[in-house]
Simulated scan of single mutants.
Amino acid sequence: MRPFKLASVLLALLLLSFAAQARKPYVEIERRLTPQQLQEVGLSEEQLAKLNRMLRDADADASEGAAPGVAAAAPAEAEADDAGPQVGAGAPRERSPGAGQFIGLNDEPIKSRLKHDVAGWEPGTVFELENGQQWKVLKGRMSLKKPIPKPEIVVVPGVAGRWFLQVDEDMPKARVYRID
């Protein structure tokens, strides 16, 4: 019987160590990523704080045995109601109901015209808009048969602070981040 008791005690200690590891304190995203990685993601300070808060709450819910995201949904809705006018892309706007539940989805597209012709793009290409903004290509590659002279463009928001530059709706979009 003794080996069985020893094995039971060792198994119990092993399970306790896993439980202790699961309750490690939350480490903020700023400490997990390099400054360059944070810039590539393109989150504002407000979005970054909100994401940290949501992840910390989800960790707490998971350690308490609640379903992840269930308790975090109510505070997100309350924040959306309390937040009032939001600023994004340089112009204030009202938040729609439910906005703020999904980071990045409450941003509006930015419409402008490029200051230069476009013959294509690849990672590292910089687009200068007439509104003064500068956007750099992070992902995506396109080579056009002939340059498009100073086209109208739309910078479209995606999930989690991602942005996509659209020269023409029939062309692939370039994933970009703002550098100005």
Rank of each mutant, 00 (worst) to 15 (best):
M1P: 13
R2G: 12
P3W: 08
F4Q: 13
K5F: 14
L6I: 15
A7C: 10
V9E: 11
V9F: 12
L13A: 11
L13I: 05
L15D: 02
L16G: 04
L16S: 05
S17V: 03
F18S: 08
A19L: 10
A19N: 09
Q21T: 05
R23D: 07
K24L: 02
P25C: 00
P25G: 01
Y26G: 00
Y26V: 00
V27W: 01
E28I: 06
E28S: 08
I29T: 11
I29C: 01
E30P: 02
L33M: 13
L33Q: 09
P35M: 03
P35I: 06
P35K: 04
P35E: 04
Q36L: 15
E40W: 14
E40A: 12
V41P: 01
S44Y: 04
S44E: 07
E45G: 10
Q47D: 11
L48I: 07
L48R: 09
L48F: 06
A49F: 07
A49C: 04
L51I: 07
N52Q: 04
N52E: 06
R56C: 04
D57I: 10
D59A: 10
D59F: 08
D61Q: 14
D61V: 00
S63C: 10
S63H: 09
S63M: 09
G65T: 03
A67H: 12
G69L: 00
A71T: 11
A72Q: 15
A73E: 11
P75I: 00
A76W: 02
A76E: 05
A78F: 10
E79I: 03
A80C: 10
D81E: 14
D81F: 14
D82K: 12
P85V: 07
P85R: 07
Q86N: 08
V87Q: 12
A89M: 12
A89Y: 06
A89Q: 11
G90H: 05
G90W: 02
A91F: 11
P92I: 03
R95K: 08
G98F: 01
A99D: 15
A99K: 02
G100R: 00
Q101M: 12
F102Y: 13
F102E: 13
F102I: 14
I103N: 02
G104I: 01
G104P: 04
G104S: 04
L105W: 06
N106H: 15
D107F: 08
P109T: 01
V118F: 06
V118R: 03
A119H: 08
G124A: 07
G124W: 04
G124M: 05
F127W: 01
L129V: 02
L129D: 00
E130S: 09
E130D: 13
E130M: 10
G132W: 05
W135F: 11
K136E: 14
L138C: 01
L138Q: 10
R141S: 13
S143E: 13
L144G: 02
K146R: 14
P147S: 15
I148A: 05
P149Y: 10
P149G: 08
K150C: 05
K150I: 03
P151N: 07
V155S: 01
V156S: 07
G158E: 04
V159K: 11
G161T: 04
F164A: 06
Q166F: 06
Q166I: 04
V167Q: 00
V167N: 01
D168A: 12
E169N: 14
E169P: 15
D170N: 15
D170S: 13
P172N: 05
K173D: 07
A174F: 01
R175C: 09
R175P: 01
V176Y: 00
